[in-house]
Simulated assay, not measured.
Amino acid sequence: MTSTNETGTHGAIVTDDAPESTGGAIVELRGAGKSYGNIRALHGVDLKVHPGRVSCVLGDNGAGKSTLIKIISGLHQHTEGDFLVDGDPVRFSTPREALDKGIATVYQDLAVVPLMPVWRNFFLGSEMTKGPWPVRRLDIEAMKKTADTELRNMGIVLDDLEQPIGTLSGGQRQCVAIARAVYFGARVLILDEPTAALGVKQSGVVLKYIAAAREKGLGVIFITHNPHHAYMVGDHFSVLRLGTMELSASRAEVSLEELTNHMAGGAELAALKHELSQVSGVDVEELPEEKDLTAPVASAPEGKA
Rank of each mutant, 00 (worst) to 15 (best):
E80A: 13
I13M: 13
L68A: 01
V45D: 07
E127W: 10
M116E: 12
I39T: 11
S66K: 03
L99D: 07
A111I: 05
I72P: 13
L42A: 06
G102M: 05
M128K: 15
V113T: 06
D46G: 07
H76E: 10
D46H: 04
V85K: 05
E20C: 14
N121G: 06
N38I: 14
Q77W: 01
G125N: 05
E97C: 15
D86L: 02
D100S: 05
E20W: 12
K101C: 15
S93N: 12
V49N: 01
V85H: 03
K70L: 04
I39D: 10
D86H: 10
F123S: 04
I26K: 07
G11L: 07
D46Y: 03
G23W: 03
R91S: 11
M116F: 15
N121A: 02
F122I: 06
F122D: 03
T79M: 11
Y107V: 02
L99N: 08
F122V: 04
G8I: 05
L75K: 15
L124T: 00
R91K: 08
D88W: 08
L47T: 09
V85T: 02
P51A: 08
V112E: 04
S55W: 08
G102V: 03
V90P: 02
G44P: 07
F123L: 01
G44N: 12
A25Y: 07
P117I: 14
F92T: 01
G37W: 00
G8R: 01
W119F: 11
I69K: 15
V90L: 04
L68P: 03
E80N: 01
Q77M: 11
Y107I: 08
D60K: 07
D60A: 09
L68C: 09
T15Q: 13
E80K: 02
G44Q: 00
G102F: 09
R53H: 12
K70E: 06
G8D: 00
V90K: 06
G31S: 04
A12D: 02
T94K: 00
A63K: 04
T9H: 10
S93T: 10
P95H: 12
K48V: 12
H43I: 03
W119C: 06
S35I: 09
N121T: 05
G87W: 12
L68M: 09
G62D: 14
L29G: 01
P114F: 14
K101A: 15
L29T: 06
G23V: 08
T15R: 08
P114W: 14
G52V: 11
L99V: 09
T94Y: 14
K70A: 13
K34D: 00
H10T: 15
V118M: 05
L84T: 05
Q77S: 14
G62S: 12
F92Q: 00
P95A: 11
K34N: 03
G81C: 00
R120Y: 13
D60C: 04
R53F: 08
G102H: 00
G62C: 05
V54W: 13
C56Q: 06
L75I: 15
G23L: 04
A25K: 09
K70Q: 10
A104F: 00
G8S: 04
S126W: 13
S126G: 13
M116D: 09
G74F: 12
M116Q: 14
R120V: 12
D60N: 11
P95W: 15
A41C: 01
R40Q: 10
A12I: 06
G59L: 00
T94I: 08
V49H: 07
A63V: 03
D82N: 07
R91W: 03
D88L: 11
